[in-house]
């Protein structure tokens, strides 16, 4: 008897839940419920910090709580998948790094989504270049000397990355391809391991975040030979850009980025509203300062700019992946 009642009330409860969540949100009074912001990285990581920095002013502007949901795993892919799984409720958005939108379809066989068809870009948030770091004992003093050294002994200079297909790996391969040299890849699990390996002399070089290399440069144990952004980066203004030197083309650029996204099919007015709030938030000097302190430069822009960025990066990294797969 009691078991029956339990089951029936459960049934009633779940229909109620379904009825509520299936209602499409009307753009003019959106949001009508707390907004869930999915992040594919654990608390304390830089995408998480960015999400929390954005979530607070966003909640104020929207008049609804913004709940950061950490769904870490598979290089950020799980966060995107989880956001898409909540599609029906109209209140789930996400913050992600570039990987899940650009290289993931090539690297993860059962991705379960198509970045072009299933994701509605909201806007870029911030970008971060990588620096080419070597141990202080390494002979080359600049990128040109590094490339000259590398072409003199092909395949002998080793570099560390944070895994096959990671940003650090692909950036290094892009660099090597454009400069016409051959480098020796040794994958690690984290930037911490790569840094230790450079300091200990296990590997020669590595592409890493400026903020990761900076303390060791200050301590005199590491050197930064160049940076992958198009213009010098505010955190390390003295490091020369790689573009245009050492045989690299003038438009050489490889950056990591964080962006806000929503599931495809989200009302265009909602996307516009979110992008508008995002622009206001990113214009705040305090936010800019806080982001720069953790190595990220704000990058305002329209949803269409993000769509262009996704398309361009997908093509660029796709070509690099083709090359590395051919090597294997």
């Amino acid at each position: 008897m009691t078991r029956m009642t339990t089951r029936r009330s459960l049934l009633a409860a779940s229909t109620l839940a379904f009825g509520l969540t299936a209602l499409p949100a009307l753009a003019q009074d959106w949001p009508t419920a707390p907004v869930h912001l999915f992040v594919g990285f654990p608390a304390g990581s830089s995408p998480d910090t960015i999400a929390r920095l954005v979530a607070e002013p966003l909640a104020e502007a929207l008049g609804q709580p913004v709940v950061v949901e950490n769904k870490p795993g598979a290089g950020g892919v799980i966060g995107v998948q989880q956001m898409l799984a909540q599609k029906g409720d109209g209140h789930s958005i996400g913050i992600t790094i570039n990987g899940p939108l650009t290289t993931a379809p090539r690297l993860i066989p059962e991705l379960g989504y198509d970045p072009q068809a299933d994701i509605a870009p909201v806007g870029l948030i911030a970008t971060s270049p990588l620096v080419l770091a070597v141990s202080a004992d390494f002979a080359a003093q600049d990128a040109a000397a590094f490339v000259a050294d590398a072409s003199a002994r092909p395949g002998e200079i080793s570099y560390g990355s944070v895994g096959q297909g990671s940003g650090a790996h692909l950036t290094a391969e892009l660099f090597a391809g454009e400069a016409g040299v051959e480098l020796y890849h040794i994958p690690y699990k984290s930037y911490a391991e790569v840094t230790t390996a450079i300091l200990g002399g296990e590997i020669d070089a590595g592409f890493m975040a400026p903020s990761g290399a900076l303390p060791h440069v200050e301590a005199g144990t590491m050197k930064m030979l160049g940076i992958t952004s198009a213009t010098p980066f505010a955190q390390v203004p003295d490091v020369p850009v790689l573009a245009g030197q050492a045989g690299l083309p003038d438009d050489f650029r490889a950056e990591l980025w964080n962006a806000m996204i929503a599931p495809a099919g989200t009302d265009a007015a909602v996307i516009e509203r979110l992008n508008g709030e995002l622009q206001t938030i990113l214009a705040d000097p305090e936010i800019q300062q806080k982001l720069l302190a953790i190595g990220w430069q704000v990058q305002p822009g329209a949803p269409a700019d993000l769509a262009d960025r996704i398309a361009a990066d997908t093509e660029m990294w796709g070509a690099v992946i083709d090359k590395t797969e051919a090597q294997q």
């Binding site: 779940s14 839940a17 969540t21 707390p34």
Partner: peptide, 10 residues
């Protein structure tokens, strides 16, 4: 923890 308490409290 960000988990709903009831079906309607998301």
């Amino acid at each position: 923890m960000p988990i709903p308490l009831f079906p309607w409290s998301r």
